[in-house]
Design a protein around this nucleic acid. Sequence first.
DNA 1: GCTCTCGGTTAACTTGATTTAACTGCGAAA
DNA 2: TTTCGCAGTTAAATCAAGTTAACCGAGAGC
Lengths: 230, 230
Amino acid sequence: MKKKTRILLCEDDPNLGMLLKDYLIAKGFETELAVDGNEGLKTFRRSSFDFLILDVMMPQKDGFTLAAEIRQDDKHTPILFLTAKSMKEDTLEGFKAGGDDYMTKPFSMEELLARIQAILRRSAALPDADEVVQFTIGAYAFDYQKQKLSSPGFEVKLTTKENELMYLLCKNKNGIMERGYALKAIWGDDNYFNGRSMDVYIAKLRKHLKNDPAVEIINIHGKGFKLLVP
Amino acid sequence: MKKKTRILLCEDDPNLGMLLKDYLIAKGFETELAVDGNEGLKTFRRSSFDFLILDVMMPQKDGFTLAAEIRQDDKHTPILFLTAKSMKEDTLEGFKAGGDDYMTKPFSMEELLARIQAILRRSAALPDADEVVQFTIGAYAFDYQKQKLSSPGFEVKLTTKENELMYLLCKNKNGIMERGYALKAIWGDDNYFNGRSMDVYIAKLRKHLKNDPAVEIINIHGKGFKLLVP
DNA sequence: GCTCTCGGTTAACTTGATTTAACTGCGAAA
DNA sequence: TTTCGCAGTTAAATCAAGTTAACCGAGAGC
């Protein structure tokens, strides 16, 4: 049985807090509710979470301050801020850094759920930019963090999209990397144009990989791609 | 113990003024209240502050004029304007440059607090000029306080902008330093020209860093830059 | 005051990454 | 074997980043 995703919800309004908590639990998340920033920090340190939802306006300690403190220990757990709509767009922009996102009140619970799932999907499918991940693919070495693909006497710098696509292929090497999954993970949305775009990148990777004839990316019609490696 | 953040509040309505002052003090800020623009300027010159809150509509001297005068001596202390909601959006836009922001009355004190925190956090992205901060980057040593970058048999003095940019890159080494974040932290505003300016500085840093081929600044299209270090 | 230098910005232009679009061909199912 | 949707290719369009040089203003030194 799969482990449930743990969410820390930090919201001072008890009505909204309980409402959201119950909703998230009903949707299959393990959810803990903290009523202010200080309690939030304690709860965060006491346990471990996969996702944080922080209200920006809270007594004692606001959401931004809390986030900054949390980020000292933990660089990666995605944070979603809940803000009043009165806040200016660009004041908030700064807080979208590093996988964080924000949502202006009021919002529907469905919106919230959709946002959580989108963020989780992306952060689960692709490693963080500073994570060291390496693969050996036939005569090639692939370094995700450095965005480089090399074989004896050869090296290319991969673009972001090439890099992410290469990663997904490697993760599923000799197995199927599904089209829809990759499109959602990399482009965020599975549609005609993104599909065409992905094909363009598959072509680029094939070109990069043509040094070693034993390595190839084959298509599984209607399913996705398979990176064949010896 | 950490020094308290000092706020200068300039507001002619005595009721609102005292209310805000008490609230800010309760939230742990050292706060001084000035009742008009002239007094505000005097107070500003007499002491030193980390944050300014200026009412736009004041007798004697309005907030914008005051801000302009203050900006002659001081380029960086963030300013938050309090404005009547009747004011045109686009009149205000002009005053958002350089880390400044505005808030339309009426607002809740929680909102005000959240906004202050948000702005302070952004302006806190860079250490103080006298703080000792050092990084080792491959064969290089970078000293933020001395504004120097050195490698065996080599040393350059960095300009302020180079120095700040280098700091942000180092702080996120092997991870993404986001464009928008850096632009707001260093230039105070994310716009086309500042973006171009930043690119110029990235180029300068790349030149400085070309001694050690293992160190490089790569671009993450649409996101920012990554300082790759072994 | 005048001029020089320096840090920084602006502007125009080049290069690169990504998307869009149109067109081609293959493969699976009827 | 025809048909249709998926995949592959290519080129153009778009937008982001990189380069270079001119420009500008402030402070240093005359």
